Amino acid sequence: MDDIPVAQRLVDAVISDFPDHAAGTRPVHTIGIGVDGYFVASDVARTYCIAEHFQGQQVDASVRFSNGSGSPVQHDGWNDVRGMATKFHLKDGAATDLIAMTLGEFFSRTVDDFFAFTTAARQTPVKRESPWQKFLDMLQLKQPLPDPYRRQTESGDAGTLAYANGHRFAQLGVFQAGMIGAPVSYARATYHAVHTFVVTGPDGIRRNVRFSWQPVAGVCTTDPTAAPVDKYLHQELRDRLEQWPARFMLMMTIGEAGDAIDDPTQPWPAKRLRVVMGTLTLTKVADDQAAAAEHISFNPCRLGPGIEPSGDPILHARRDAYQESCQRRGGNSCPLSGNSANARSANAK
């Protein structure tokens, strides 16, 4: 096992959680849709970061919205973490990526934690807890198991809840994931980049920050008491963009002394300063979905000058795992860039 690269083990571990996973597809966030748009930075963005896309000019952007599951079956109405991966197209063919999801905090601090979590999250036959068991769970301050959906035969909920009950650091992320619901639209959810990044301003000041996308249309989820619909998110987005653009504000939260920098399971205090860094305008669903949703490559460590990854071990592990995933599915990879030693090393190879 030690002879197998960590990136390969990470991808294999995620795939193992979904018995029906289709070879040649993303290990998670398998079902997705690509959208075209552009980003314009706010007037103050350039005072905080020298990155090219924060200087005020219009920058083309490619966005892929997705469901979190690694299953090839589209269950839009099920409780699930949704993804929003954004590629900012810069000069001379360069790019910067920002990968975000509707989960506010992650559930693993280290790579070893992640392997343990994926083992716990393996799919098992679903079971419906009795009302008495749900009551006992609540008395013990445990989250009861959710009732299975119609036609749902397997789930990882029992394992993830058991893992969270035994690992305090995972509790916030697992609880959020269990209560997140289903959005009425991909354009009506908040997406968090989860990890801490380091931005450099024109004055040379370096700041620890976290990014999130806030929908201008507001957040709205489906009725949890109604029967879930299998497929609606893709068509809803097509219909929405045929009438008017969808917009997101890019928010940057600035960390302070004592905030968790290298641990994505820990939230920052709500009183931290937040800066509007710009507006993303989505104009249409991409014409070529094979290129815009299936073959397009994103990587959380593909960062241009002015933005660097923090020392978060999960963030650095994702860098190589995303490259591994891209190679396995024949994605259109592009070079990693940025100021970090890891990125410079990758470019030199």
Rank of each mutant, 00 (worst) to 15 (best):
S185H: 11
S71Y: 01
L98Q: 01
D12E: 15
G24Y: 05
N347W: 13
N79P: 05
T196D: 09
H195G: 10
E308H: 06
Q327V: 13
T221D: 14
C326N: 09
F88W: 04
G166R: 11
T102I: 05
V229K: 10
L233M: 08
P72V: 00
T253F: 07
G34H: 05
V11C: 02
V6S: 05
N299L: 01
L273T: 15
I307H: 01
Q152V: 06
D3P: 11
A227F: 12
Q57P: 08
V59A: 01
M252R: 04
G104C: 10
M252H: 00
D259V: 07
G278Q: 02
P300S: 06
A217Q: 11
D12Y: 11
T253D: 08
N332I: 10
L145D: 01
D263F: 03
A61F: 04
A292G: 11
T265S: 04
P313V: 03
H316M: 15
Y322C: 12
V209S: 04
I15Y: 07
D157P: 00
A182F: 04
I4M: 11
G331P: 09
P228S: 05
P228Q: 07
F88N: 03
D112P: 03
V209A: 02
H195F: 11
K134M: 11
C220N: 13
A321P: 08
I99P: 05
G306Q: 08
T124I: 11
D80Y: 00
C49Y: 04
A182H: 02
V229W: 09
M138Y: 12
V28Y: 12
C49Q: 05
L139N: 11
I31H: 12
K91I: 11
